[in-house]
Design a protein around this nucleic acid. Structure first.
Lengths: 304, 304
DNA sequence: ATATTTCTTTGACTTTAGTCAAAGGAAATG
DNA sequence: CATTTCCTTTGACTAAAGTCAAAGAAATAT
């Protein structure tokens, strides 16, 4: 893996310092106008999630001490900003939800913050605003991608199954003929000697997966490459492929194959961009309409 | 002035939230590992400026209460991180400078922050790192520009004179024959009916200027458009020109002219890009090598 | 069914951050 | 040279942020 150039690091740190100084501070400042910052943040978080949130969740998300959180929630409750309840499934957990008043306050804060931002952008010409918006979108996309880790997990792991379920639901919606879950590989097919399973995590949540399976001596098959709709267009599928190919190479496989459904045109384009070439059918798989192959370890990768 | 689209505002706010959550927080966190955040920031600021800094300066830069600052500085002194002295020119002022130990601590923090950043960027391919760096640079450039205000000031104002001094020094260094300060317009030539003077401010500091002078009935002259070296390549000169032309139009002038030295090729390109056309000499000014003119109020601006 | 773990609440703290006013020395102003 | 302004220090506070441990209720594991 290439080392990170110090120029990139300095540029990043320079931006970071500039941005948090100039913008981040502002944002925090308006937030905590009528109440302590911690409380404002908490209310914002509570109002952000439509249904009720559990205190346990909030604690995790905001990284707060249990006692501290408990007290702040009480304060908000006393002010009529939130309502407390008991979790229906587990009565140890308490849930919080915003009252109309709480929602209104957050709305008002959003309005003010929006006005602040608009004031800032006012200093730019329209085309410069567009340029800024695009640059920020690019940066955010890449930052998200950088924060996602791809990890090998056991085929039986709950995260693995969760991803496959989501994958199956996705395909069922996209294939004209639907998709039957029983067609997924079993956990034992992607564990141990038989294969491997990778899950991509973003801030602890699984947002993508991919499986590798031994097909015949020297040949592997890649299956079930899936990316959560919320994490698409980041370049994550490529990273999953990288991981799968790396694993295949480490197992001494020289060729990987895969098949894909005719309707998944963007997937086909992606495979081709990653160095896969279309080959004749190597399976008579129900859903397969196109077959691809890539020879591994043949010098430099064709990276976009 | 065009209204800011809500899309741009939302995109900006989304980035802001994402960035401060994911990155900004990190940065603060490592900073305040061994000492309170405020103290760490203060030490960072002190170590950042090579020579000693005055407390007055620090107070301005960090926006701290005088008493609060005084105490924090004492704490740092007691820990051997900084040395206190009296300002040579004004013994009401105190100066602070980092000791070797203080410098070392900041160095160590920088090292750690750098490692953190490198770890983050590690998740990206080299070309994606470059893309990110570029996007951040663009964003920072535009944010800086958005934060700069152009204000009309009196020709006698200290900020106006400071800009003109810097401008003169700049020209003196660039012109082969040097530049004589006595050639600058006098304060009364850019005040009241005779003309106007604009200063660009970035976070309270003057970073650019431009003057407008009545030349003859219906015709104005733009002079001394200057941008601080630290604020170049942002598009600030254009904004200064916009302000000057707006002022000229408001005064009923229909034409503005300007002259420029032969060596200032980038200025000439900029004038042309802003709708100025070269004309024959209208002065026999010593330093002038090219003359330009623009007719005002003729429909839509040619914006880049 | 008993023990263990999980989750929230409460009490009792500490640290950090920040404010305000008084006071004294030094420079600038008239 | 008297007055005003500027800058720092000190004392006396307050509010916010955060920590830790004990305790009780509910769920899970054995």
């Amino acid at each position: 893996m290439e080392p990170v150039s110090t120029d990139d690091v300095t540029a990043f740190r320079r931006f970071n310092r500039y941005f948090t100084r100039r913008i981040g501070v502002l944002d925090d400042h308006y937030l905590g106008q009528d109440r302590p910052l911690g409380e404002a943040r908490l209310l914002y978080e509570i109002a952000g999630s439509e249904a009720g949130v559990s205190l346990r969740d909030l604690r995790g998300r905001l990284g707060l001490d249990a006692g501290y959180l408990s007290r702040m929630v009480r304060t908000l409750q006393a002010q009529g900003m939130v309502r407390l309840g008991v979790h229906p499934d587990d009565s140890r957990l308490r849930t919080v939800e915003p009252t109309p008043a709480g929602r209104a306050e957050v709305e008002e804060q959003n309005r003010r913050a929006g006005a602040l931002t608009a004031g800032l952008l006012q200093g730019l010409a329209p085309d410069q605003r567009r340029e800024l918006t695009e640059a920020l979108a690019t940066a955010q996309r890449l930052l998200r991608l950088a924060g996602i880790t791809v990890e090998r997990v056991d085929g039986h792991a709950p995260d693995a199954r969760a991803c496959l379920d989501a994958y199956a639901a996705d395909l069922d919606a996209r294939f004209p003929e639907g998709f039957d879950k029983s067609d997924l590989v079993g956990p034992e097919e992607v564990s141990g000697d038989a294969g491997a399973f990778f899950v991509a995590y973003e801030e602890g949540r699984p947002v993508g997966c991919g499986a590798l399976r031994r097909l015949e001596p020297g040949v592997g098959e890649i299956k079930h490459v899936w990316v959560d709709p919320g994490a698409r267009r980041l370049g994550l599928a490529r990273r999953l492929l990288d991981a799968l190919e790396g694993e295949a190479a480490a197992r001494g496989l020289t060729v990987v194959r895969l098949d894909t459904h005719a309707v998944l045109t963007e997937a086909q384009a992606m495979y081709q961009a990653c160095g896969y070439t279309e080959i004749p059918a190597y399976t008579d798989h129900v859903y397969a309409g196109h077959w691809f192959e890539k020879r591994l370890g043949s010098g430099p990768e064709s990276r976009r």
